[in-house]
């Protein structure tokens, strides 16, 4: 075990633990935000730079500070390391910079985005007091496309966290989508028209931190904050069958995997559980989801924006009408 101090709070962790995971062990406000790291996906992390922290003392043996801010999700803790996160103005400033840069090409159309209410970027931006960037230039745009029967891709909203490609590598035999091109014009794509269709493809939606990959069956049916999340399970031969049912009354609006306090799924679920069991009788309901990830919605801070929405658009599955609405905006 090694000792590490983060924002003046000391804890002990196994050797090889990252600073981020050490912070998560402490918990609370000092945990750096993470938009690309995903503990169950090896190879994730390091890309979004949201989790930057300051290392004031590298270790007990080498008490010098590290010259640059480091990504806490991929920097291992050292014995005697002293880290500053929210107590460092430099970190807060850098993080604000990261948010602003992430928004440079982001449409910020939360009012018409299915992810609103459970979006890491929306939370991240809100927390740093930024709702837009100072960039006045046109954003890169892409038309939304269907990748297979279940998933829609809004590339304009993608923050290129690489999680969906990693999940595909891990859960499927042959990945058919990937990251194409380079730099600012990189995009998630299949390159040729190709459906993403295998038993676990739905998990890409759950790992996506933003509204870039969304559930076509759920789109526009309802806003998450009007729904009741319930833990439930069923016997499934392909996966653990442990899910969250998103209910309004007795109607199942959506089935997702279970996310932990940091928005991560540890038990990936199969597409059958996700999309073929919309009957409540198929499930053993365990009870209300014990916790909710912190979000601007839960904190009641999002009302102003939600009011702009024409209510009827959420009432029924009505893609045609919605498309018209999108055409107008």
């Amino acid at each position: 075990m090694i000792r590490i101090t983060i924002d003046d709070i000391e804890t002990q962790v196994e050797e090889g633990t990252t600073i981020l995971n050490a912070a998560r062990k402490i918990g609370g406000k000092i945990v750096p935000p993470a938009m690309c790291y995903y503990s169950s996906l090896p190879g994730s992390g390091g890309k979004c730079r949201a989790c930057l922290v300051k290392v004031e003392q590298a270790s007990a043996r080498d008490p010098r500070p590290m010259p640059k801010l480091v990504a806490s999700c991929c920097t291992p803790a050292q014995d005697g390391m002293v880290v500053r996160n929210i107590t460092s103005p430099e970190v807060i400033e850098a993080r604000k910079g990261v948010v602003e840069l992430l928004l440079v090409n982001h449409p910020l159309d939360c009012p018409i985005c299915d992810q609103a209410g459970e979006c890491d970027l929306q939370n991240f931006a809100y927390e740093h007091g930024l709702e837009k960037t100072r960039s006045e230039f046109p954003r890169r745009t892409f038309d939304p496309i269907d990748i297979g029967p279940h998933i829609q891709l809004h590339m304009t909203r993608c923050i290129l966290c690489y999680r969906c490609t990693l999940v595909a590598d891990q859960l499927t035999n042959e990945r058919v989508h990937g990251i194409l091109w380079r730099g600012e014009v990189s995009e998630i794509s299949t390159y040729i028209q190709k459906a993403i269709d295998n038993d676990f493809s739905g998990n890409m939606i759950d790992v996506c931190p933003v509204g870039a990959l969304t559930d076509k069956h759920f789109r526009f049916r309802n806003r998450v904050w009007f729904l009741n999340p319930m833990d439930a399970h069923r016997a499934c031969s392909k996966c653990s069958g442990k899910v969250v049912l998103w209910l309004r009354g007795k109607e199942i609006y959506r089935v997702t995997a279970r996310k932990d306090a940091y928005g991560e799924v540890h038990d990936f679920i199969c597409n059958a559980c996700r999309w073929e069991h919309y009957d409540l009788n198929d499930w053993v309901v365990e009870g209300p989801r014990s916790f909710q990830p912190w979000s601007v919605i839960n904190a009641n801070k999002y009302n102003a924006q939600t009011k702009e929405l024409p209510d009827q658009l959420y009432s029924k599955l009505d893609n045609r009408r919605w498309n018209e609405f999108e055409g107008v905006t």
């Binding site: 390091g46 890309k47 840069l101 440079v104 090409n105 923050i159 290129l160 380079r182 730099g183």
Partner: peptide, 21 residues
């Protein structure tokens, strides 16, 4: 630099384009 950024990390991917513009 905008043209040559690999696009992996957000400050460089988004920032180099902004600088150019």
């Amino acid at each position: 630099y905008h043209h040559e950024s690999c696009g992996q990390c957000s400050p460089c991917r988004e920032g180099t384009g902004w600088l150019e513009r």
